[in-house]
């Protein structure tokens, strides 16, 4: 009756709303938590202390150097054809502008191909990327590479339409990458609305002039930590089932959704299993990654440091694409493993979370392990609105719903426990 007990305690029993309440306490205390900040380190200390207080085992952190990028003050102002403040957010790793800013004529393109076609007219200008949103995975290349592509043509800065399918005039930040051997030019995102407006202005033949000011700076890498807590396995403690999410966030909003919800879903799953006195045969390990937003920095360091342990990772789970109403799991692994998961999820019919889809694309930090053939899963949930809030000031505690978190925790904790407790290892190549 293990699964029914977990479901009952979370939906109507004394563990009801604990994931939401613990997340809210954390978010209200720390707000957003960018890598390299003292606030993130304080948040990590808080989680270590809470883990000990709530009885988790082998609680510790593992150090890793992470990028330290600081936004500073920033603004973008449309000067011509009329005056308007443009809501903007500098992109992570961007250089700043000179102190007086950059005032330049702007040119709008809808794609990298259009940029190539007008390459002769780009020199000395601010390039605005007004790309159409297709999907996050397909469109995010404009955020990542806009600055490098435009710099190759002599542009002085880039402004990128935010990578979101829906906008209430919200800019959405995120990491960007400079290519080798190109001039590093300042780059920021603007809102979809402003991007569309600037395109219309250009199409009417109007001359666009923008003043961009950014104080962004990159400092030497700083020490941060992955946060680890366990329930030690009762019979095969060397074998490990990982549940995870990332504790860092962007420096806007509160990072309640990305990835406070995922981190607390994983961490509180262990807390509630411990509270219920459920100790599986294998070790259950919660890992709260650091510096995911800067390029999976904490995960890469962890995988490297635990290379010798890789064969003992039985199953790896991560939630980093929303904790809305859960539907099941997204899975990567061989077909037999999917069958095992389907059998486990059939235990959760009462809460309608029986679907298994492939692949496990909502778990960026576990991709290193998945690519080595270790089976894993991410949370399948009603995340249609996830990218409305993603990396924006709208990512606050209001995105999270106590009932959805109860259901998601019931699913997450049940799967983690059963996988860690059944006789057979999860099938793998």
């Amino acid at each position: 009756t293990v699964v029914n007990r977990i479901i009952h305690s979370l939906l109507v029993g004394d563990l009801q709303n604990t994931t939401y309440r613990r997340l809210a306490e954390f978010i209200d205390k720390f707000g957003n938590r960018i890598a390299g900040s003292e606030n993130l380190e304080n948040a990590i200390d808080y989680m270590l202390n809470k883990s000990v207080e709530l009885g988790l085992e082998n609680v510790h952190s593992e150090e890793v150097y992470v990028p330290h990028w600081v936004r500073g003050n920033e603004s973008a102002v449309l000067i011509q054809p009329r005056y308007q403040n443009l809501n903007m957010l500098g992109l992570g790793s961007s250089v700043g502008t000179p102190v007086d800013g950059i005032t330049a004529e702007a040119v709008v393109v809808d794609s990298f191909e259009e940029l190539e076609n007008i390459a002769a007219h780009v020199y000395g200008k601010i390039v605005i990327f007004n790309e159409r949103y297709i999907s996050y995975g397909e469109t995010v290349k404009y955020r990542q590479f806009a600055a490098s592509k435009a710099a190759e043509q002599g542009a002085v800065a880039t402004l990128v339409r935010s990578i979101t399918p829906f906008s209430l005039n919200t800019p959405h930040t995120g990491w960007q990458d400079y290519s080798d051997n190109v001039t590093k030019i300042p780059t920021a995102c603007i809102t979809a609305e402003d991007s569309h407006m600037l395109r219309r202005m250009q199409d009417r033949g109007e001359r666009i002039i923008i003043k961009l000011k950014m104080e962004a700076q990159t400092f030497s890498p700083k020490l941060s930590r992955n946060t680890i807590a366990e329930i030690k396995g009762g019979e095969k403690p060397e074998k490990v089932v990982v549940v995870s999410g990332h504790l860092d966030s962007w420096d806007v909003g509160e990072g309640a959704m990305d990835d406070g919800g995922g981190a607390f879903l994983s961490w509180n799953s262990l807390v509630i299993l411990k509270y219920l006195g459920l100790r599986p045969k294998r070790t259950l390990r919660a890992i709260l990654w650091t510096a995911e937003e800067e390029g999976l920095v904490g995960a890469q360091a962890y995988v490297k440091a635990h290379k010798n342990e890789t064969q003992n990772f039985n199953f790896v789970m991560e939630s980093d694409e929303g904790t809305f109403t859960p539907l099941g799991l997204k899975y990567t692994g061989i077909p037999d493993g999917k069958c095992v998961l389907e059998a486990i999820l059939s235990l959760l019919k009462d809460i309608n979370t029986t679907t298994v889809e492939e692949p496990a694309d909502g778990g960026p930090d576990i991709t290193f392990w998945l690519s080595e053939g270790i089976p894993g899963a991410s949370l399948l949930n009603r995340a249609e609105s996830y990218f409305w809030y993603h990396h924006s000031a709208a990512d606050t505690m209001d995105v999270e719903d106590p009932e959805a978190l109860n259901l998601a925790t019931a699913l997450w904790a049940s799967v983690a426990y059963v996988v860690a407790d059944i006789t057979a290892d999860m099938p793998r190549k």
Partner: peptide, 24 residues
Amino acid sequence: TIFNNEVNQCTIPPELQKEIASYK
């Protein structure tokens, strides 16, 4: 309860299916 159409497509051994069902 797990012997629905979805699970019947699978190749996992019946004893493992029974073991998983016991967690309900």
